[in-house]
């Protein structure tokens, strides 16, 4: 059991590290957010799972287990809000981005508001 939890800790730390490297290397806000918020999934969740396996069904272990769904909801909402906010604020996509379907919708909705005024 101990070895499994240690392996999970190492995997988690490694993926958190990859997330940080991605945060530095990737080009624009959106791609940086991809890596910043997502290292949580395998990184932090596997650290928490390792904690659970280490402590078993005790108060600490179960709290670590409950933290996973809470992280699932909070970090996704944060990522979503940051992406949407920065897009509507006018932060541009990277030059080499391939496709942008969202642009049309935003333009239509903002034009519609102007007409209403």
């Amino acid at each position: 059991m101990n070895t499994i939890s240690i392996i999970l800790f190492i995997v988690g730390a490694a993926f958190d590290l990859f997330g940080c490297i991605g945060l530095l290397r990737l080009p624009d806000v959106y791609n940086k957010l991809q890596s910043a918020t997502k290292s949580v999934t395998l990184g932090t969740c596997s650290i928490l799972l390792g904690l659970f396996i280490h402590y078993g069904f005790t108060a600490v272990g179960l709290k670590a287990l409950i933290a996973i769904p809470i992280l699932f909801f909070t970090s996704t909402v944060a990522a979503h809000a940051l992406v949407r906010g920065s897009y509507l604020f006018g932060v541009k996509l990277w030059d080499k981005s391939v496709i942008d379907d969202y642009k049309k919708v935003v333009q239509i909705s903002t034009e519609g508001k102007e007409v209403e005024k």
């Binding site: 959106y30 991809q34 890596s35 997502k38 999934t41 699932f72 970090s75 996704t76 979503h80 992406v83």
Partner: peptide, 10 residues
């Protein structure tokens, strides 16, 4: 959003 590589914007 939780799956790496994709974020729901709206």
């Amino acid at each position: 959003t939780m799956t790496p590589g994709t974020i729901t914007v709206d």
